[in-house]
């Protein structure tokens, strides 16, 4: 197993420029002809943040200090999940004509789709980097753990993207369901509100959502300027391992005959 997986990682590594070229191609095609180009990936999250800020400060009152910072952290990280999963769903079905004509590791298709979303997201995260001190963010040593948290989060998303991209090949309704699910999940994640204002049994339900656990980590590091609790970290790691395991198993099981079903 050990030697085998090292060999297959080496084989994927050989194709690293394929992922890179696919991502670059997608970016060029997407922003072609738009005067503001790349900056448009800021537009959507910015509009969302303004909207939610209005809703949560004027319509529903929130007592959180530095509320906008809290909100931006949640919205940006939720967006990464939402866009990756929704795009990843039809990554394989969209690449049918490619996959039927040449062999390359199929796992790179959903992976390139995630990488594409990530690149756009890294531009959007500039909003946070620029506004961080203004909105009350504190620079503390815990921030060096943030990249680690982000890697865990991305792995968790990668596992889901792998699973959904494979399932989409067989169940073409999946994408529609996923988009509705993403809409619902937003409100079942503490993004615009503090989980502690909820009734205990609602709190329990919301904490079953893996995204709640990830948000807790991000809020701890970026908003409260503390470290996440050990329990919180363990749950996040467990969710990540589960997601990656399911994703890779599903992909392995289906990859061999994927082309025939596309």
């Amino acid at each position: 197993m050990g030697a085998n997986s090292t060999a297959s990682v080496g084989r994927y590594w050989r194709y690293r420029d394929l992922v890179r070229n696919l991502v670059i191609a997608n970016i060029k095609v997407r922003y072609q002809g738009a005067a503001l180009g790349f900056l448009w990936s800021l537009g959507n999250p910015l509009a969302m943040i303004l909207l939610y800020d209005f809703v949560f400060t004027h319509v529903f009152r929130s007592n959180l200090p530095n509320y906008i910072l809290y909100l931006i952290i949640g919205v940006l990280h939720y967006n990464l999940f939402a866009q990756s999963v929704s795009q990843g769903c039809d990554s394989l079905t969209g690449a049918a004509s490619l996959a039927q004509k040449i062999y390359f590791p199929r796992i790179l298709i959903p992976t390139a789709s995630l990488a594409f979303t990530l690149v756009l997201w890294l531009v959007a995260i500039l909003i946070l980097v620029v506004l961080y001190p203004i909105l009350g963010g504190v620079y503390h040593w815990g921030l060096v753990l943030y990249p680690l948290a982000l890697v865990l989060y991305l792995s968790f998303i990668w596992g889901i993207v792998l699973s959904f991209s494979v399932l989409q090949v067989e169940y073409r309704d999946l994408k529609h369901l996923v988009e509705i699910g993403i809409m619902f999940l937003f409100w079942f994640t503490p993004i615009g509100y503090d989980i502690h204002v909820l009734k205990p049994h609602t709190q329990f339900l919301i904490s079953l959502n893996p995204l709640t656990q990830f948000m807790d980590v991000f809020h701890a590091l970026l908003y409260s300027a503390t470290l996440p609790t050990v329990k919180n970290v363990l749950i996040v790691v467990a969710w990540t391992l589960a997601s990656v395991a399911v994703g890779m198993l599903l992909f392995r099981a289906k990859a061999r005959h994927l082309v025939e079903d596309l």
């Binding site: 194709y15 690293r16 394929l18 890179r20 070229n21 191609a25 095609v29 490619l98 040449i102």
Partner: peptide, 25 residues
């Protein structure tokens, strides 16, 4: 020309096409 993208230039498509065959840029 597997994977050729009509929106990209010929040059960009050379790299894209070759990377499908497992070549590095």
């Amino acid at each position: 020309g597997v994977g050729f993208n009509p929106e990209l230039t010929g040059l960009e498509n050379i790299f894209l096409n070759a990377s499908l065959y497992g070549f590095l840029n």
